[in-house]
Design a protein around this nucleic acid. Structure first.
Length: 307
DNA sequence: ACTCCATCCTGTAGGC
DNA sequence: TGCCTACAGGATGGAG
């Protein structure tokens, strides 16, 4: 389940490999992975081939590669998407859906000139699309773009425009987020998973942050005071950053970096997937509730709904 | 306008 | 052993 840390690991791995490179070929093995591509705006392959990739940008769980034609290749990993960098001629990865060939001659004359970027996705919830760009409403950088510099950093794909900034984005507004929280009439976990309010958080990190902030998943958003909102934000940032340092959370082969390597944060999870085990704070047996078509893992003693 | 839920998918795990 | 069902969940569009 790639969330912000996992997508950032992929972004950081893709950036040095493709920034400045030119797309030399596209192979589509499964058109379902183009679900987010608007065919009326042009053919996916035609919009890519011959164009230079300017960088790699991420907002929340969305990743995009800005192109020199004013558009961007938008990548969403969904549940099981992977971007794998391969040497040309490498045998097809299982569940290979789309392959881009990029020419790196202009970037690095010493290494191999061509590289394959394989989009692999078991469950096909992820996708690739070429999209038009629009400026950010606040004028700040659209997302995190590593070493990237240029006017394109303040542009974002149209289909990402409704996605809120993520909590480790320097332009994230705590005030806007907290005001949005108090205005809502829903439970806190539902709000954390709403990417139009705050982005980058999925089921794993929502459960982990709620545990750290000692909040029950169904705690009404409007009931949180400023201090509780601040501590929740602090918990989110702390957990996302720690997971990033450890290379993300991997349970199986479904999440890996661009070289196929797993992350280590699974060892640091306090509640996710630990139902039946004791709470590290109080020893109470952790439980799992079904909620929103997914699991919510929490400590029934430390995380109690309050009035 | 806001909230919520079914839907898209496939591999694995568990039950019988 | 083998078949079958339940489960995992990110984003979306439409229902309420």
């Amino acid at each position: 389940m790639p969330e912000l840390p996992e997508v950032e690991v992929v972004r950081a791995g893709v950036e040095p490999a493709v920034a400045g490179a030119v797309v030399s070929g596209v192979e589509i093995f499964d058109a379902r992975s183009l679900r987010r591509h608007d065919a009326a705006a042009g053919d996916f392959t035609d919009l890519l081939v011959g164009h230079r990739i300017l960088g790699a940008v991420r907002r929340g769980k969305f990743l995009w590669l800005p192109l020199d034609n004013g558009r961007a290749l938008v990548i969403h990993l969904g549940m099981s998407g992977q971007v794998l960098l391969r040497d040309p001629g490498t045998a097809d990865d299982r569940h290979l859906r789309i392959r881009l060939a990029v020419d790196r001659t202009a970037v690095d004359r010493t290494g191999p000139s061509e590289l394959w970027l394989n989009f692999v996705d078991q469950r096909v919830f992820g996708s690739m699309a070429v999209d038009t760009m629009k400026p950010t409403v606040d004028g700040f950088a659209a997302g995190y773009s590593g070493q990237g510099r240029g006017e394109w950093t303040a542009l974002l794909p149209s289909q990402v425009a409704h996605i809120a900034r993520d909590p480790i984005d320097p332009a994230f507004s705590d005030e806007t987020f907290l005001a949005g929280l108090s205005r809502r009439k829903t439970g806190i976990k539902r709000a954390l998973l709403d990417q139009t309010l705050i982005s980058g958080i999925g089921n794993i990190y929502a459960d982990e942050a709620l545990f750290a902030a000692r909040l029950h998943y169904a705690q009404p958003t409007a009931s949180l005071n400023g201090a509780q909102g601040d501590s929740l934000l602090a918990a989110l940032r702390s957990i996302l950053r720690r997971a990033l340092v450890e290379g993300g959370t991997s349970f199986d082969a479904q999440y890996v970096n661009v070289n196929g390597q797993a992350g280590y944060f699974a060892h640091s999870l306090e509640v996710y997937g630990r139902q039946g085990a004791p709470c590290s704070r109080c020893g109470t047996v952790l439980v799992r509730h079904s909620f929103m078509n997914r699991g919510s893992h929490f400590c029934p003693a430390c995380q109690v709904v309050f009035a």
